[in-house]
Simulated assay, not measured.
Amino acid sequence: MPQRHFLLYKPYGYLSQFTSEFEREQRKKRFLGELHDFPVGTMAIGRLDEHSEGLLLLTTDGQTSAQVRSKDIEKEYYAQVDGLITDEAVAQLQEGVEIGLRDVRYQTLPCQVRRLVEAPALPPRGRSIRSDRHGPTSWVSIIVTEGKFRQVRKMTAAAGFPTLRLVRVRIGEITLSDLQPGEVREVSELLPAAALAE
């Protein structure tokens, strides 16, 4: 049976999983299976937390999943942060910052960060971010090759600019393109065959 692969624009408020072992969570949370009739054996490649949005890849193929999660594949995020982010904060993020991972401290790897001059043209989020009267916000692009738990949110907070909205816009060469929140698109492959053979 051929493997199947999907692109999904994960909306705000959904977990990046199909079920939960916790009965209370199963009753109160929203899961990926509500968005599409995925085949048995489909797995999300990596995760976006409940309050994050954007590109999520899914596959029935474990080999493809492992390849996409490797440090060879860039993941790009647009983060709306609280305040007007400074050049110093951008440089700090580029060099790597110390974040907490459970009971340990972790130094993030150097990454690519740039301030976005204008807010990106993204679909509105299901829930409002906050009122403008609470002060200005700004947007940054952050490209990482690692994927620690809530890493980008923790990075911007460590630099003094907490994330208000987080959208993953690219994984490797795959972008959100014209996908809309909740939309699923089946594709023939997620990575070029050459990349899988490396």
Results as ranks from 00 to 15, higher is better:
169 V>Y: 06
151 Q>F: 07
98 E>Y: 10
135 G>Q: 10
140 V>N: 05
124 P>G: 10
158 A>Q: 02
148 K>H: 11
98 E>V: 14
58 L>Y: 04
106 Y>R: 04
67 Q>K: 13
76 E>G: 00
120 P>W: 11
154 K>T: 02
58 L>V: 02
100 G>M: 14
138 S>E: 09
135 G>Y: 13
178 D>L: 07
172 G>R: 02
171 I>D: 06
75 K>S: 03
156 T>K: 08
82 D>S: 12
83 G>H: 01
69 R>M: 15
125 R>L: 13
184 V>W: 07
81 V>R: 03
189 E>S: 14
119 A>S: 11
94 Q>P: 03
171 I>Y: 05
180 Q>G: 11
177 S>Q: 12
118 E>D: 15
100 G>A: 10
164 L>G: 01
130 R>A: 12
71 K>R: 14
154 K>F: 03
85 I>Q: 02
107 Q>Y: 09
86 T>D: 05
72 D>G: 08
86 T>Y: 05
136 P>G: 09
118 E>K: 08
71 K>C: 15
111 C>S: 06
71 K>I: 14
135 G>S: 09
82 D>C: 13
102 R>T: 13
107 Q>R: 08
86 T>V: 06
169 V>T: 12
109 L>C: 10
79 A>C: 03
104 V>Q: 15
137 T>Q: 07
152 V>H: 01
103 D>W: 04
80 Q>M: 14
69 R>L: 15
178 D>Y: 04
142 I>Y: 06
165 R>M: 03
163 T>C: 09
167 V>F: 06
127 R>A: 13
103 D>L: 08
166 L>I: 02
166 L>Y: 04
123 P>M: 10
132 D>I: 12
165 R>D: 03
129 I>M: 12
132 D>C: 10
187 V>Y: 05
117 V>N: 13
174 I>H: 04
111 C>M: 00
182 G>S: 04
102 R>Q: 15
135 G>H: 08
168 R>K: 00
162 P>R: 00
144 V>T: 08
94 Q>I: 00
116 L>S: 02
117 V>S: 15
110 P>V: 00
151 Q>C: 06
135 G>A: 10
183 E>W: 09
173 E>T: 08
98 E>I: 14
62 G>E: 05
113 V>I: 01
178 D>M: 01
166 L>V: 01
100 G>Q: 15
92 Q>K: 04
104 V>F: 15
73 I>K: 05
174 I>T: 11
131 S>Q: 10
122 L>R: 05
63 Q>D: 14
169 V>S: 02
116 L>D: 02
85 I>G: 03
158 A>R: 00
65 S>T: 06
79 A>S: 06
82 D>W: 04
110 P>H: 03
62 G>H: 06
60 T>E: 08
141 S>P: 15
162 P>N: 01
172 G>T: 03
